[in-house]
Design a protein around this nucleic acid. Structure first.
Lengths: 243, 243
DNA sequence: CCGTAGTTTTTGGCATGCCAAATACCAGGA
DNA sequence: TCCTGGTATTTGGCATGCCAAAAACTACGG
């Protein structure tokens, strides 16, 4: 989280134009461990192995070169995020989501994104809305998304995040980011696979059009339906991805 | 203070014959501290005093009778929740939200609740939907909500939580609960004060009607508009509540 | 071979103690 | 009186080490 630099007012520092650089935040080991572990967890494919993935405090502390204390604090934070669950005298396990949970998360995401769309129609600048098209400028009739799934998937995520950001609502941004982190754990379904990719692009363009037209209700509906479509897709075809 | 009192209560399993007692959850000090601090923070009126409310690790550990370690872990968790913010060598401060942040949270709440309403129209049982009316059975033309604001406010919260629960979506339930905890910090605006209370009841009944009618779009719209109404209210009249 | 009681090892939970940064406090000088 | 520099104190960050509950491992009797 970017910190609002608080410049303390000293009695007579009024005109001193010395570059008063904000002293380094010096992230603590606790936070470093948190970031490191979070990234590691997101990077690993949790659903590949049948047996649950376990973490070991001592091993981690040795690995990261710090004592167990900051590691434990980081674990506590990750547990709040729902990435990890520590069982009293048994160990720390990386949480695996069920299909139902993922579908549920995608629905919540749909709710938040449709609200973002609603807000955007009333506050965003035309220019910024139009800029959303750029995410898909590399795709078209002669370069179909379904022929470059991986690349399109990246553009897809970027588009959604940019969209939410346009709402200028920190809460919506943070909540959807959290949800996305969980949903993306399923990298097999890179946010809708080949068969869904085909319908994805037109839907995105439709959303942008509604936003440009400042049609609040329509933009909200299109954003909602688009993501609910993904939820329905996962619910119907995601069976094999979950054991 | 925190002596090596690691002595746990002896398990008196002498009399019980085959009680299939589940593995004892035995909440840790860390979790106890988390719950205790969370409740304390929610209970205090953060916005009453002009200067920021600070917490002291050592004082808390003495207060709760445990060492600093579990306290620090609990603080780390609370920080993830956004209730608290620890500044390196300065202290732990209870976070105060700005009006804009509260409004933002209420909007997100509106988004989630409208999605809940949508889901309810397709899955909830008629009986459960109708049961929502019970929350307001004590109010009517001869006992106006605006004459019993405190009581009505409680019913209000309970209604919203029951509503979301009907969606049977753990994610929606958890996310809204978290948001509510933050928003409720402003107990002055007990979720819409007197002047808003008057319009609240009819809106709630309208929502219930739409749900019973299984009118997905209407239920969603009414739920959304109702809560967005609160957001607009706070944005317009909440000025004096924030410094 | 199997089950079982006893023993060792592993693992998270906590208490303690020290460190450095920040702050509060204080005495001496212009 | 107001600085100013130096010192004591406060406060979060971390490293360590011990504890008890579990699990893993062993030895032994049937």
């Amino acid at each position: 989280m970017p910190e609002p630099t608080q410049t303390k007012a000293s009695p007579n520092m009024a005109d001193t134009d010395i570059a008063i650089v904000r002293i380094a935040p010096e992230t603590s080991f606790k936070n470093k461990a948190y970031e490191a572990l979070k990234e590691a967890i997101l990077k690993m494919d949790i659903y590949a192995t049948p047996e649950p993935v376990m973490l070991d405090e001592r091993a981690l502390s040795e690995r990261l070169g710090v004592s167990r204390t900051p590691i434990r604090e980081a674990i506590a934070m990750l547990e709040q995020d729902g990435f990890v669950k520590t069982v009293p005298r048994r160990g720390i396990v990386v949480v695996r989501r069920t299909k139902a949970e993922i579908v549920d998360m995608i629905r919540a995401w749909a709710a938040l994104e449709s609200m973002a769309a609603r807000l955007i129609t009333t506050t965003a600048r035309k220019k910024d809305i139009t800029a959303l098209r750029d995410f898909f400028k590399d795709f078209g009739p002669d370069r179909l998304p379904q022929d470059h799934v991986e690349e399109y998937s990246k553009a897809n995520i970027a588009f959604h995040q940019a969209l939410i950001s346009l709402s200028e609502s920190p809460v919506l941004v943070d909540l959807t980011n959290d949800l996305l982190l969980h949903v993306r754990g399923y990298r097999q379904l890179t946010i809708g696979r080949k068969d869904r990719t085909a319908t994805s692009l037109p839907e995105h363009l439709g959303m942008i059009e509604a936003l440009e037209a400042r049609d609040t209700e329509l933009a909200e509906k299109r954003a909602r339906d688009h993501t609910l479509g993904l939820a329905a897709y996962v619910e119907a075809h995601g069976q094999e991805l979950f054991t």
